[in-house]
Structures are given as C-alpha cells and as structure tokens.
Amino acid sequence: MNEPYVVSLHGVEGLPAAERISAELRVIKELDRGLGGAEAVVETYRAWRDACECDASELSASTASLAVKWPKAFETAQRAGLKNIGESDAHFEIHLAQQSVAAG
C-alpha cells in the first residue's frame, strides 16, 4: 500500500530503529487524527507550503483556510512523536509521495 506521505525523524543519532519508527508512526497517527486522514494531511501541508511561497493576496480563501491549520496540527504531532525521546535537536520532516507531488 502506497502512503501519500511519510515522516522522518532527524537529530537523534544513536536512537534504536524501533524507537525512531515508533516516533514517526506517532506523528503520522496524530496528523491523520487531527486533520482527518492521510489525504487531508497532504492537502493541508500543500496549502501551507503554497502559503509560505507566495503573497497572501495570491491565495484562494480555501487554500488560506487550510494553510492555517498546519502549524498547530504539526506542532501537536511533533509533541506526540517526541514523547519519551527528549532530544533538543530532534525534529520531524514530512515527505510527500512522488505520485502525490506530481502535478501536470
């Protein structure tokens, strides 16, 4: 099954693979729960990325309303993912699947 996005944990050298994977899965679970599923995560993340890359006047109302949801959802997911890890440099990155990224 191809997932529309994956999460990777960075900044935690020496963390056992099982713990890293568990942390990444906690982030995915929290994002999916908070935003309404994997496709909604991708849609919200893309809207946020678009909002960051253009002038606010260029955004549609629907893109803007989606984009504002991302920071809080991602912060909440990161907190869930970092639970019990305690690394100050630890952070998560979102990677969209190639099929999700391709546009025309």
Rank of each mutant, 00 (worst) to 15 (best):
D50T: 15
A51D: 09
E30Y: 04
R26V: 05
A23Y: 01
R79W: 05
G37W: 00
G34V: 01
L31S: 04
E58V: 08
V12C: 12
E39Q: 14
L25M: 12
E75S: 14
R26K: 08
C52R: 14
V68L: 09
A23K: 00
R49N: 15
E13P: 12
F74W: 13
E24S: 02
V27W: 02
R33S: 15
T76S: 14
D55G: 08
G37T: 04
A47T: 05
S62V: 12
V27L: 02
E75Y: 13
L59C: 07
Q78W: 08
F74N: 06
R20F: 06
E13W: 10
A38W: 02
R33Y: 10
D50R: 15
A64N: 03
R46F: 13
A64S: 07
P71E: 05
P71K: 07
Y45N: 05
D55E: 14
L15A: 00
I21L: 13
G34T: 07
G36L: 05
V41P: 02
V12W: 00
A47Q: 01
A47N: 06
E75C: 08
Q78N: 12
D50A: 15
S65Q: 10
C54I: 12
W48P: 03
R49W: 14
A17K: 13
Q78A: 11
A56L: 11
A73V: 07
E53G: 15
V27H: 01
L35Y: 06
V42P: 09
A40M: 10
W70A: 00
L66I: 08
Q78C: 13
K29L: 11
R79V: 14
E24G: 08
L31M: 04
A51W: 03
A73E: 05
K72S: 14
A38M: 02
